[in-house]
Amino acid sequence: MNRRLAVKNLSLLVGAATLLPACLSQTKSDQAATVSLKHVAVSAPEEQLLAEVCETLIPKTDTPGAKDLGLHRYVLKMLDDCTPAKEQQLFLAGLRQLEETCQQQMGQAFGEGTAPQRLALLQRIDQQPQQFSKEVVGFYRSARQLTIDGYTGSKYFMTKQVVYELVPGRYNGYFPVSNLRVAKPSHGQS
C-alpha cells in the first residue's frame, strides 16, 4: 500500500470513529463517553446528563445553545486535563448524585424533566446551595463556570458576540464608554 492510500484509509477510519457514537441513539451505562478522557471515567449516560445540564445553563435561544456548540465536551476536556484531582472527584460525585436529587425533587430523571423543570432545579442549587449536598453544589459550580468558559471562549461567541481581535493595531487610553459597543473581558492589556 502506498503512503498516500494509507493516509486516506486512516482518515476514513478516524471519520468513522467520530461518527460512530452519534449513530447510536441508545446509550448504555457501561458505555464510555464520546470524549476520550485520560484521568476521569464518565459513562455515556453521565455524559448525556451533563449535556442536558449544560444546555440548561446555556440554552438555545435565538442564538446557539450548549448542545449546538458541544459545550459539555469542552467541560469534560477541561475537567479531565485542567482540574485538580480533588475538584474532579467532587464534580463526578455531584454529577452522580444529581440524578438522585432529581428523583427526590422532580420525581423523575433530569433528562425526563421539561426544560422549565430542569431550570427550576438548577436555580434552586444556584440560589439555595445550603439545601443540597456539597457534592451537588460543587458539581454545579464547576459545571457552570466551565460551561461559561466554554461558551465565552467558543469560536461562535468570539466571532459573533464579543468579537476577539487577533490584531487590534491600535490603543486608545481615553476611549469614551459611550462609544463602546461591547465590554470585553480585558481592556487595554492582553
Binding site: F175, S178, A183
Partner: peptide, 14 residues
C-alpha cells in the same frame, strides 16, 4: 473616570 475605558491593547503595559 467612569466615562472612559481603553480600546485596543497597550504594548507598554501602562
Amino acid at each position: 473616570l467612569q466615562n472612559f475605558t481603553t480600546d485596543g491593547r497597550s504594548p507598554a503595559g501602562g
